[in-house]
């Protein structure tokens, strides 16, 4: 690799200054963040203060958050109802997601020790789907194995993980993404992507050039206003 290029500070600052970026652009990025991350009241205030139109109906943020919370506390039935209230097409057109929700429901039955209900639910709702698709069947088998390994410390991680909070999160995240997609929104806030790109760009450039780093974090605490 050739020797690193040396970039002067003033040169770099001119580059920074020349970047074509408006406050409007940044406001949109912030709005996108507030919407995707589900900060409904913040998004409302921001919409007023910055004079921006929210990219989606802000009410949808609230129901999306409600759905996520329902899944995070294990109330799958509630989540399914609300998703269908929001937009029935989401589950109709996304069979894999629907299966994932049903599987989660089965997991919650098992977690609560409602074994009879779990069996009945598996036979009536999930087994027919397993016949449709081998992938579903494998997942179903894995889930049913929970019954066999109940409270056994020797259970394989792949199976006990189904009972972990991460599994709920995974399902909640998938539903969240599907809802966002149905609203033509990205599933990840653009700001997150921006910081990923910044991390990538700085590390790539770091290998090739000496240049002023941004020291982004050190800028932050100075701004940690607490306004009540």
């Amino acid at each position: 690799m050739p020797p690193k290029t040396q970039i002067r500070k003033d040169e770099w600052e001119k580059r920074l200054h020349d970047v074509d970026l408006s406050k409007q652009d940044l406001n949109q990025l912030v709005m996108d963040y507030l919407v995707i991350e589900g900060f409904k009241t913040s998004a409302e205030e921001f919409s007023k203060e910055a004079g921006l139109n929210a990219p989606v109906d802000l009410e949808s943020i609230e129901s999306r958050m409600t759905i996520r919370e329902a899944l995070q506390r294990g109330d799958v039935g509630e989540a399914i109802t609300r998703v269908n209230d929001l937009n029935p097409e989401i589950l109709d057109t996304n069979r894999g997601l629907y299966f994932q929700l049903q599987q989660q429901k089965l997991i919650e039955f098992i977690r609560q020790g409602r074994i009879a209900e779990a069996l009945e639910f598996a036979q009536e709702e999930l087994a027919p789907r397993g016949e449709e698709n081998p992938e579903y069947l494998a997942e179903l088998e894995k889930t049913m194995a929970l019954l066999a390994f109940e409270s056994s410390p020797s259970a394989p991680a792949a199976i006990t993980d189904l009972l972990s909070p991460a599994q709920r999160m995974k399902t909640a995240s998938a539903v969240n993404a599907a809802i966002l997609e149905s609203l033509s929104q990205g599933k990840e806030a653009k700001l997150v992507g921006l910081l990923k790109l910044l991390s990538w760009g700085e590390s790539m450039l770091d290998e090739r050039a000496h240049f002023p780093k941004v020291r982004l974090i050190s800028l932050l605490p100075l701004f940690a206003h607490r306004v009540n």
Binding site: W12, R15, G201, R208, F211, L219
Partner: peptide, 18 residues
């Protein structure tokens, strides 16, 4: 500049330099 704006500007400058 707000840190957020710096993040964008810095990223953009990195990309151009790369």
């Amino acid at each position: 500049y707000p840190a957020l704006e710096m993040a964008y500007r810095q990223a953009s400058a990195c990309i151009v330099q790369l």
